[in-house]
Each structure stands twice: as C-alpha cells, then as structure tokens.
Computed example of a mutant assay.
Amino acid sequence: MLKHRVIPALLLREGGLVKTQKFSKHKYIGDPINAIRIFNEKEVDELVLLDIDATRKGREPDYDLIEGVAGECFMPLGYGGGIASVDQARRIFSAGVEKVVLQTSALTNPRLVTDIAERFGSQSVVVSIDVKRDWLGRYRLWSSATGRIVTRDWLETLTGLVAAGAGEVLLNAVDRDGVQAGYDLRLIKMAAESVDVPLIALGGAGKLSDFGQAIEAGASAVAAGSFFVMQGTHRAVLITYPEYADLERSLR
C-alpha cells in the first residue's frame, strides 16, 4: 500500500465527465461509469467526483447518478456538488459514498460542516478550497460557483473550516488546473503549515515527479485530473493510472 494516496479527481457536467483548463475550456471525457470501471481495474486508491454545475445551477445532487457510480466504484469515493444540507449528505452517504466535499455551502454556512461532522464524523467531511492568484500574484480565495474572487482571506477561511469540523482539505490551485506544469508548492506549504488535518493537493500534475514534490511541500495526498485522463501534446482522451511500482518510487 502506498504511503500517500494518489487520487483521480473527475469533473461531472450534465451527466458526463469533462476536463477543464483554469476552470474553463471544458472538454468532454466520457461516461463516468466507464471511467470508474477502468480505475477499478487499475486498483486506484481513492476517487473524487465533483459536479461542477449543481451549485451554479441551483440544483440538488443527482442521487440516481451518484448511486450508480458508487455501485460501480471499488475504491473509497468522495462526492461534491450541490450539497447544502445534512439530509442531502445523508442521502449521499446512504448511496455508498464515503465522503462529501463541500465548497460553496461551507463558505456561506460553516455550521453545515460542523453539523455533518457531528452526525457522520469529521473523516467524512472534506472542504474544497480553490485559490487563484490576482494580477499582483497574491493568493485569493476563489468561488467556482460564481467564477469570482471571494473577498476574504483564503488561509483564515481554510483554518476556520477545519476548526468547524472538516476532517480533510482539498486544495486546488486554479491557475494550475489542467495546465500540467506542476503543483503550486508554495501554496501547498502555506496550507499544510496552517492545518493539522490531511491536505490533498490538486491542480498542476503533469509527471510522476510532481507527486513527490507536492508531498515534500506538505501534502498528505495528491489528486489530479488531466494527468489521468489526457495524454500527449494534443490532449487526447486516454484514461490511465501509473503502475504501483512507479508511484511508489515517485512518492519516496
């Protein structure tokens, strides 16, 4: 078993999988069930599925789709998108999902993080923090639902949500999304030094050595999208996962 989890992060839109670059340029990847079956065969550590339209369009999670995905998934599964109540989280857990990923609802109602953690355990609650650099290069909190910078300190927000009960953090560098130029190591280091819960780094993986660098910077686990679903300079769709031995070497 690997010392650190290596997690495919899949983006769901209108029932299909897409991949983005810097949260735009959506490219269709395929059917989520087919992708999960491939990852099952590759014996993936864990999987995260994020519905990027649910909150933006003001709709609830697609429970039928979630149940279908969870039924096919042999590895621990986290789901995010459209979760705004404890009852919605309960329905998702009942479908077979191990973790809920909260962003917009956590930012607007931190009490929801506490309520879900108190009922289901903090290990089941992941807060998703998106960070984007402004024109001066400063880190700013970003809302994926509105596509805008949020006028509050990103690090204070992160530590506050962990204090509220989140058992894990998914930290995504918006400027690195889909670019495959490496993780934002400074961002990871700042976050890791500020919280005492597992930190999953997302955004920028382009080669195996990037995983090791993110871990050295302080991440507990690494996640990626393009690295697992696109190959080559033309970004051809090819769902894959490295061999265990290769991952082991990269994470030493």
Rank of each mutant, 00 (worst) to 15 (best):
D134Q: 09
V197L: 08
F39W: 15
K132F: 05
K3L: 12
K3W: 05
L171M: 09
D87N: 14
W154T: 00
I29P: 08
R90F: 02
V69W: 00
T108M: 10
G218H: 02
R235N: 14
P61K: 06
D53C: 07
P110A: 07
P8G: 02
Q88D: 09
A106S: 12
K25S: 14
A117I: 10
G82C: 09
G212Q: 06
V86L: 15
V86Q: 03
V162N: 01
R138Y: 03
I215W: 05
S105F: 02
Y241C: 03
L170F: 03
E67H: 11
G30I: 05
W135G: 05
V150G: 07
G204K: 01
A145Y: 00
V127R: 00
T104R: 12
I215D: 04
S122G: 04
L208H: 06
D130K: 06
F39L: 10
R59D: 09
G178F: 08
G82S: 09
S105I: 03
L185R: 01
P198L: 04
I215Q: 07
G58P: 10
K42T: 06
V97F: 03
K189R: 13
Y244K: 15
E41T: 12
L77F: 07
G71L: 03
R91N: 13
I7M: 03
G15W: 10
S128F: 01
P32T: 02
A205N: 05
S85E: 08
R152V: 06
S122D: 11
G58T: 09
D31C: 11
L141E: 04
F228C: 04
V44C: 03
L136S: 13
V174C: 06
E118S: 12
P110L: 04
A201C: 09
V18W: 04
F74S: 11
W135T: 12
V222H: 01
K22P: 00
E216H: 06
N34L: 10
S128L: 05
G203Q: 02
G178W: 10
G30F: 08
G68W: 00
A219V: 05
G58N: 09
L77W: 06
V100E: 03
G182K: 08
P61L: 05
T159S: 13
E60Y: 08
G178Y: 08
V48K: 01
M75Q: 07
E14C: 11
E14Q: 15
L185F: 00
D31E: 13
A245V: 11
L158D: 00
Q21T: 14
P61C: 09
F23A: 11
V126Y: 10
L17G: 05
L187M: 13
G225H: 02
R13W: 03
S24K: 12
L202K: 01
T108S: 13
G80Y: 10
T157E: 13
Q88M: 13
E60G: 15
S124T: 15
L11T: 09
K19P: 01
D115S: 12
I36V: 15
R140I: 03
R186W: 05
G225A: 14
K19F: 10
S24G: 08
G16H: 15
L17D: 03
T159I: 10
S209E: 15
A9I: 13
I200P: 01
V101D: 04
S122A: 12
R235V: 03
A217W: 00
A221M: 10
Q123E: 15
T114S: 15
T104E: 14
H4T: 10
A163S: 12
R37Y: 10
A181K: 13
F211I: 08
D31V: 06
